[in-house]
Design a protein around this nucleic acid. Structure first.
Length: 263
DNA sequence: TTGATTGTTACCGG
DNA sequence: TCCGGTAACAATCA
């Protein structure tokens, strides 16, 4: 479900909806009981996103680390709060709203040291102010691995997932199997700035919207739901009508136009 | 019931 | 050390 845009939006919304008040934290299915005990009755101070990771900073210096993985999902509630649906790992209840967390890859209370270790393994995040292009350039420009694999590696760029990797490479006409070190600085710079722009659009509209450069700025009707992805799971190329190819790269299905994205 | 999935980690071998 | 491949884990839905 989530790439970086979803996570940053969640951080923003959860901060808006829950920060500053005493919260009740529980673990309806009995998992994460110790963590829930540590947090309940405390105040949420801030919520921060780095790539696909969420860090909830609570009073008394506690940090809740959440990673949704493939299946993780938040459900937002208003009173009356419904019965838990499925395996609810974490339930947070405030005065106006509540949320449940199902199926996360990670949900745990961590120390400042553990948090630093998590973030040390994450690369630059295009949605963060501290996202550093020089770090991205040095990682990609010196690697023999395929750019399609590097874009999924969260220690290279944090927040890109399987949809954005295919879409950004298609927009820039780069073949996914191209080794990172055979891209020039200009191309890597374009990758970085394009990802930043795409992710910001994703945060704004709460879904992934890929527009052809020629479509940007045109009336909304040109950007309807059918046009939001240009290669990912598409039958033909939006530019040249050639059949889209797909294969496994880095353990995930990648999509590319054989004509617009030459090796 | 089967297959697929907007993810990550650990481990092994080259 | 880098890099690719595989398995394991998480949960839901068509």
């Amino acid at each position: 479900m989530p790439e970086g845009h979803t996570i940053h939006r969640l951080a923003r919304d959860h901060h808006r909806d829950f920060a500053g008040e005493r919260l009740t934290v529980s673990s309806p299915q009995g998992r994460f009981v110790d963590g829930a005990k540590l947090l309940t009755g405390r105040t949420l101070k801030s919520v921060e996103a780095h790539g696909k990771h969420l860090f909830y900073n609570w009073s008394a210096g506690k940090t809740l680390h959440v990673h949704l993985g493939l299946y993780g999902k938040f459900r937002l509630h208003r009173p009356p709060i419904p019965e838990p649906r499925g395996q609810v790992r974490l339930r947070v209840v405030g005065s106006e709203k509540a949320f449940d967390l199902n199926g996360p890859n990670t949900c745990r209370v961590i120390t400042a040291k553990e948090r630093a270790a998590v973030q040390a393994r994450l690369g630059a995040d295009p949605l963060r102010d501290d996202g550093d292009f020089e770090q991205v350039w040095s990682r990609i420009g010196s690697s023999r691995a395929a750019i399609g694999t590097l874009l999924l590696n969260q220690s290279v760029i944090a927040g890109v997932g399987n949809i954005y990797r295919s879409e950004v490479l298609h927009l820039l006409g780069i073949h996914p199997e191209t080794p990172g070190q055979s891209l020039d600085r200009q191309q890597i710079n374009s990758l970085w700035s394009e990802l930043k722009a795409l992710l910001e659009i994703g945060v704004k509209y709460n879904r992934i919207i890929i527009a052809e450069p020629s479509e940007i700025g045109k009336p909304r009707s040109r950007m309807n739901r059918d046009e939001r992805l240009l290669v990912y799971k598409q039958p033909v190329c939006s530019r040249c009508d050639t059949e889209i190819e797909d294969w496994l790269l880095g353990g995930r299905r990648v999509f590319a136009c054989p004509k617009c994205q030459l090796r």
